[in-house]
Simulated scan of single mutants.
Amino acid sequence: MDTRPRLRLALTAGEPAGVGPELLVRLAAIPFDAELVAIADRGLLERAAARCGLDIQLIDDNAPAPALATAVQLRVHHVPMPAPEQPGAPDPANARYVLATLAEAADGCLAGRYDAVVTAPLQKSSINDAGIAFTGHTEFLAERAGVDVVMMLASPELRVALATTHLPLSAVPAAIDGPLLQRVLRTVHAELRRKFGIDEPRIAVLGLNPHAGEGGHLGREEIDTIIPALDALRGEGMELLGPLPADTAFVPAMRARYDAVLAMYHDQALPVLKSEAFDRTVNLTLGLPFIRTSVDHGTALDLAGSGRADPSSLIAAARMALDLVLRSRRAA
């Protein structure tokens, strides 16, 4: 019998003026076999719950649970927010608050206070407007943990990892080299085995150029960089397909041949994934010493404050985090 304590999932609310706080309180109303801990400003969550018409009881994370539950309960690690939120209008004054919630979630996972972290969307532009260089959750958590990571989005039908993440398209070719591709593919291969229980992962690798370069006529990156990197890893025993043309890699006959796809840049493959499974897709950060999942959408400023934002992706992210933690426990 497993006598270990109940799992604890840390939740961050993301951009205060976006839909994240409302999604988070809606998530709290869903039954989970885990303890949910919101790392956020208590007042922000109270106002979000009121907008959603939810009767929610916020409990300090250090306090014992009430003997009698009269409403939905949610534990809170309170982080004070400098400026009150105005739904739909991000305030750069709250940028450091947003990053403080992420830091607490990451540090708490590293220290064993939380078993995983689930993040709601944030507004990168607002953080940069505050004078803080910031490219995204993935890069922030990698720096906090001191590791190299890979961004993956996964639905029940498809897993897509990225060789590069939040870069201008003009910067992508120079960013892709052999060592990068080998590091990324080793991480994806190891995490497919460790997190998803796939003993012999099959990974499809997309080319950078149209038609995967068409023999060098549409670009030489496949010939000069991608193919040599794949051949080296095949020599280590990895099962790799490609480089494949991106326009045919996602047809049903091809999907049956692989367990995951490595795309060269952010918008090369993610539109395919999001167009068919937007509310069921989860963002994962591979390579971290803890499990992190997130939604596959942005802050939806046009919906913020309405109480009508769909929590399906955040619910999927929390369920995947719980599944991954339980799988790792069973394997331990």
Rank of each mutant, 00 (worst) to 15 (best):
D224K: 14
A116R: 11
K124A: 05
L169E: 10
L181E: 13
G235P: 05
Y114L: 05
S126A: 13
G146Q: 03
E222V: 02
E104D: 09
L102P: 00
L233W: 07
G131A: 02
P245H: 11
E191Y: 06
Q123D: 12
T119G: 00
T138N: 03
A174R: 15
P201C: 13
F196D: 14
Y114R: 12
R193I: 10
A232W: 00
A103P: 00
A190S: 15
L167M: 13
G108I: 01
I198S: 03
L110M: 14
E139N: 03
H137A: 09
T138M: 07
K195C: 09
L218F: 08
G136F: 06
G178D: 08
G197K: 12
R144E: 01
L153E: 00
K195H: 12
M238E: 02
L241Q: 12
G237R: 13
G112P: 08
A171W: 10
L122Y: 02
A120R: 09
F196T: 05
S170L: 15
L122T: 06
G215V: 01
F140R: 11
A103I: 10
E143P: 00
P121T: 15
D115M: 09
M152Q: 09
F196Y: 14
G235V: 04
E139M: 10
R144F: 01
T225V: 15
A130H: 08
E157D: 14
A171E: 15
I227F: 02
R113V: 01
R193D: 10
V118W: 00
N128K: 10
V184H: 15
A174W: 09
E222A: 12
R194E: 13
L208R: 12
A212W: 07
R183V: 00
A212V: 01
V117D: 08
V160Y: 04
P228A: 08
R234K: 14
E139R: 10
R193M: 08
P156F: 06
E191T: 12
E200M: 13
G207T: 05
A161D: 06
P173H: 08
I226H: 07
T101D: 04
C109H: 06
A116N: 10
L169C: 11
D224L: 14
V147G: 03
G197F: 08
A105G: 13
P245R: 08
C109V: 00
P228N: 03
N209S: 08
L153C: 04
G136N: 06
H189D: 15
I203S: 01
D115S: 14
R234F: 04
G108E: 05
I132L: 04
A163L: 13
M238P: 04
A232R: 11
E214T: 11
L162G: 04
A100P: 00
T138G: 01
A229L: 09
S170W: 10
R186W: 01
V172R: 09
E222M: 06
A161E: 04
S155N: 05
K195G: 10
I198R: 08
T187E: 05
G146K: 12
T138W: 03
E221P: 06
L167Q: 13
A130Q: 12
E214Y: 08
P245F: 10
I227N: 03
D129I: 05
E214W: 06
L167Y: 12
